[in-house]
Amino acid sequence: MATTLDTITQVLTETFPIDAADITPERTFDDLGLDSLALLEMGLAVQESTGITLNDTELPKTVGQLVTLLDAAQATTAQADTAPVGPALAATDNTA
């Protein structure tokens, strides 16, 4: 079963000119060459892949932080279908 890091790696390599080998939990998105607009684009790509909406104003700075956020959101979804979890998450309702 694919891990969250696998999913993120797939999204990043399909959307941006980033090599999978460069994607580690410690890497910042800035290191990977994503500027602020690209980071928002990454959020949309993650949403499309996972159904989880990231909060535009509190996007994670590192790959590891993104893994944590997505794992928390998935855990919450598994427990209940409602409340958002984590400062940078807003469930799947992007109008929140």
């Binding site: 607009l37 690209a38 928002l40 684009e41 949309l44 949403q47 535009d56 992007n94 109008t95």
Partner: peptide, 9 residues
Amino acid sequence: DRPLDISPL
């Protein structure tokens, strides 16, 4: 009705 899904680019 998904204005927040508009690409920032």
